[in-house]
Computed example of a mutant assay.
Amino acid sequence: MHINLSGRSAIVSGSTAGIGLAIAVGLAGSGAHVVVTGRTQARVDEALASIRARHPRASLAGHAGDLGTAQGAAELIVAFPETDILVNNLGIFEPKAFAEITDADWMHFFEVNVMSGVRLARHYAQGMKKRGWGRIQFISSESGVQIPAEMIHYGVTKTAQLAVSRGLAEDLAGTGVTVNSLLPGPTRSEGVGDFFGKIASETGVPLADVERDFIATHRPSSLIKRLATVDEVAAMSVYLASEQASATTGAAVRVDGGVVRSIV
């Protein structure tokens, strides 16, 4: 299968590292014009250079701002009023005991993980609908299906993304715009790598052993028995952005290594 996104434009929120950067690389490599977003211009510039190193002819643009706020979303929309493909990847996570999760924590996680995607989808879906073609994705998590006890607030926001995605797909039925969510499992992203690296440093245990112990203890249902790579997740995102995926909408597509013990 050859995916050709030439002539299409894409915006990937939170795309300066990890899964978001890998998705931006994949979309750019398939010919899309990609807008890379991040909190600082320095991080955006680093990401653009990284993509160009892999795809010298890539068509790229960058935008720095905090998309976890209404103002940040509005600024992006002013700078880039239209897009064909929107990937709502921006997200944060933090292991924290339920009793210690404050109201401010709950609201912050909801603003960043849920409302960032809601605000962008609310705007960009209208243009897609008028043009009769579009792709909207929400990068959720298997944690939205199996809420992790160690970060309930994170899991709740990932469940909310699934609901928004399905509801929006229903709203856009028959318009040529598809809306899907992805459910990655434990993935070797920058944030996860930093988290495991800290544990390895504090305990003196090799990083590979920390990752293996995490899978065995916290995600024992994993069928691949390892962390996924960001490129493995990105490959599914690029497919869902393609013309070939035109019959896939309203779906929660798992890239979880089999962590979720379900046949559907």
Rank of each mutant, 00 (worst) to 15 (best):
M1L: 10
N4I: 07
T16N: 11
A17T: 14
A17Q: 13
G18R: 01
A24H: 05
V25Q: 14
G26P: 14
A28Y: 00
A28P: 13
A32Q: 11
V34M: 09
R39V: 00
T40V: 03
Q41G: 07
L48H: 01
R52E: 09
R52K: 10
H55A: 09
A58W: 00
S59D: 12
L60R: 04
G62N: 08
G65K: 02
L67G: 01
L76R: 03
I77F: 05
F80E: 13
F80S: 04
T83N: 09
T83P: 13
D84V: 10
I85Y: 13
F93L: 06
E94P: 00
A97F: 00
A99I: 01
T102N: 04
W106A: 04
F109L: 04
F109T: 01
V112L: 00
Y124T: 06
A125P: 04
K129Q: 11
G132R: 04
G134H: 00
G134M: 06
Q137P: 09
Q137T: 08
F138E: 02
F138W: 06
S140E: 05
S141H: 07
G144M: 08
G144Y: 11
E150R: 09
Q161W: 00
L162S: 08
S165C: 02
S165E: 00
G174N: 01
T175C: 04
G176I: 05
P184W: 03
G185D: 02
T187I: 04
G197K: 08
K198E: 15
S201H: 12
E202Y: 04
E202G: 10
E202R: 10
R212H: 15
H218A: 13
E232P: 15
A235N: 11
Y239D: 11
S246M: 06
A247K: 10
T248M: 12
T248S: 06
T249V: 05
S262R: 08
I263V: 12
V264H: 11
